[in-house]
């Protein structure tokens, strides 16, 4: 095939017989490349987004883990102190019981005194009836 003089001059015709400076093949390949590049960029972007989300999520998880860890430590400490608290509570209750016990003792003495008075009065009544 004879060399196309136009091609040498760097001019080409496309299918629609329009004059072009670039070889239609090249042009087509370029366009393809462009498309592919665009695709690639898109994909990379998407990837980045996904990775970002992942990192965030991992971070959150880390935070959560940290929190739980603290919670666990707190709970452990609290558990340790419960014994102490119990002791204090027991002490308080013990004091209240002692108080009530004292009150009970007072009531017991009062009751005894009243019983004695009752007995005395009964005795008096009996005596009185006997003498009458």
């Amino acid at each position: 095939m004879a060399k196309d003089p136009l091609a040498d001059a760097g001019l080409h015709f496309d299918e629609l017989n329009k004059l072009r400076v670039l070889d239609p093949d090249v042009s087509q390949k370029t366009t393809e490349l462009k498309e592919e590049c665009k695709d690639f960029v898109d994909k990379i972007g998407q990837f980045q987004k996904i990775v970002g989300g992942l990192i965030e999520m991992v971070d959150e998880l880390a935070k959560e883990a940290e929190k739980e860890k603290m919670k666990a430590i707190g709970a452990r400490n609290l558990l340790k102190s419960v014994a102490k608290q119990r002791e204090a509570q027991q002490q308080q209750l013990q004091a209240l019981i002692a108080e009530k016990r004292m009150q009970l003792e007072r009531y017991r003495i009062e009751y005894e005194a009243l019983s004695k008075v009752e007995a005395e009065q009964n005795e008096f009544i009996d005596q009185f009836m006997l003498q009458k």
Binding site: M102, E105, R106, Y107, I109, E110, A113, L114, K116, V117, E120, Q121, F124
Partner: peptide
């Protein structure tokens, strides 16, 4: 009837002949 408060706070009653 005489009502007496003891030093420990309890009330004690005592009868007197009428």
């Amino acid at each position: 009837q005489v009502t007496v408060r003891r030093a420990d706070g309890s009330l004690v009653y005592s009868g007197v002949p009428p």
